[in-house]
Simulated scan of single mutants.
Amino acid sequence: MINFNGTIQENNTVLKSNNRGFAYGDALFETIKTSYGKILFWEDHYFRLMASMRILRMEIPMHFNMEFLEDEIKNTLEANHLAAASARVKLTVYRNEGGLYLPETNDISFIIDVKPLADDFYMISEATYEVDLFKDYYISPSLLSTLKTNNKALHVVGSIFAKENNLQNCLTLNTNKNVIEALNGNVFVVKGNTIKTAPLSDGCLKGVMRTQLLGIIKTMPEYELVEASISAFELQKADEIFISNTIVGIQPVTKYRKKNFTNTVSKSLIQKLNVKMRLN
Rank of each mutant, 00 (worst) to 15 (best):
C170R: 06
I160G: 05
N184P: 03
N165E: 02
L171K: 04
I180H: 05
C170F: 06
I160P: 02
C170Y: 01
L183N: 07
N166A: 12
N184T: 15
A162G: 01
L167I: 03
E181F: 08
A162E: 04
I180P: 00
F161T: 00
I160D: 08
K163Y: 09
F188G: 01
A182I: 07
G185A: 03
N166V: 07
L183H: 05
V187H: 05
T172L: 15
L171Y: 06
I160H: 11
N186E: 03
N174D: 02
G185H: 05
N169S: 08
I160N: 07
T175D: 08
N174C: 04
S159E: 14
L173S: 03
L173Q: 00
K163L: 13
A182S: 12
V190D: 01
E181K: 06
I180Y: 07
K163N: 11
C170V: 13
N166T: 07
N184Q: 12
C170K: 10
N166K: 15
I180S: 03
A182M: 07
I160L: 12
T172R: 14
N174M: 06
L183V: 09
S159Q: 13
K163E: 11
S159H: 14
K191M: 10
N165T: 03
N176D: 13
L183T: 08
N178M: 12
K177F: 13
I160V: 13
T172S: 13
V179P: 08
N178F: 15
F188W: 02
S159C: 12
L183E: 01
K177H: 14
S159W: 15
G185V: 05
N165P: 04
E164D: 11
